[in-house]
């Protein structure tokens, strides 16, 4: 697991590093510290990471435009910030967790737990997915999503209006961020429950979910049972 810490106060960065090491110990392959957003971006351009611990001045627009950029990336972002009142907005942007300053080891450990859980069972507040498009970042409203199809290291987002976008996170990472009205119905599909029309059971135990607009998405056999229980059908 490769971790980057962006924190402009050296003492805090060192402490974050110490605590992270003591929580995750062997799982860590590498921890790197950058003391400014600029140097952090330069590092990210060269290196791949799994998790970003980001201290951000969220006062004003600048902080959030940097956040837009970070959450569009393949890795997860955990914000560590003194701007507690901005936590809700940060969650809406799709950060994995928001750790308010000052923090202790337990709080940080909780954040890492979220990182390690395959998908989010607790509800998340994410409202937008940030998409990189022609070098710019665009915040797409999640409730316009119909379904998501995994495509290796990235995912394809299908919207109600028929448009399609590419997200740099894979399906596993996205499922950790999505709210509870999304469900994984297949290795390669996540759907918006609110958009279900019907389930077709076809001969040979073939299950197909029909979404509004007559869009057919396969349900995997192994998941069908548990989904039926969960949805009460």
């Amino acid at each position: 697991m490769k971790i980057l810490i962006i924190e402009d106060e050296p003492a805090i960065a060192r402490r974050t590093q110490r605590l992270t090491q003591s929580i995750l110990s062997e799982q860590i392959q590498h921890i790197h510290i950058c003391h400014s957003v600029e140097s952090g971006l330069a590092y990210l351009a060269e290196q791949e990471i799994d998790l970003l611990l980001l201290d951000l001045n969220l006062h004003g627009a600048d902080g959030f435009s940097i956040l837009e950029q970070m959450v569009a990336a393949p890795f997860h972002t955990i914000v560590i910030s003194a701007y507690k009142e901005k936590a809700i907005t940060a969650f809406e942007y799709g950060v994995l967790d928001f750790v308010p300053k000052p923090f202790n080891q337990n709080r940080l450990a909780k954040a890492f737990q979220r990182f390690q859980k395959p998908s989010s069972e607790s509800s998340t507040e994410t409202k937008f997915l940030s998409i990189q498009k022609k070098g710019r970042y665009q915040m797409m409203a999640i409730d316009n999503l119909l379904y998501i199809k995994g495509a290796g290291i990235y995912a394809e987002l299908f919207f109600k209006d028929g448009s399609k976008e590419i997200h740099n996170k894979n399906l596993d990472k996205l499922s950790q961020l999505l709210p509870t009205y999304f469900d994984r119905i297949h290795k390669s599909y996540i759907i918006n429950k609110q958009e279900i029309e019907e389930i077709l059971v076809e001969p040979g135990s073939k299950y197909t979910l029909v979404l509004k607009g007559d869009i057919h998405v396969p349900i995997s056999r192994s998941r069908y049972k548990s989904l039926r229980e969960k949805w009460g059908i």
Binding site: E9, A11, I12, R14, R15, R18, N57, H59, A82, Y83, K84, E85, P100, K101, P102, F103
Partner: peptide
């Protein structure tokens, strides 16, 4: 305000440990 006092206290935590 939080960005001053919280950052200062967080930094201080580290200094206390170190």
């Amino acid at each position: 305000q939080p960005h001053f006092i919280m950052n200062t206290l967080t930094s201080l935590m580290s200094w206390v440990e170190e």
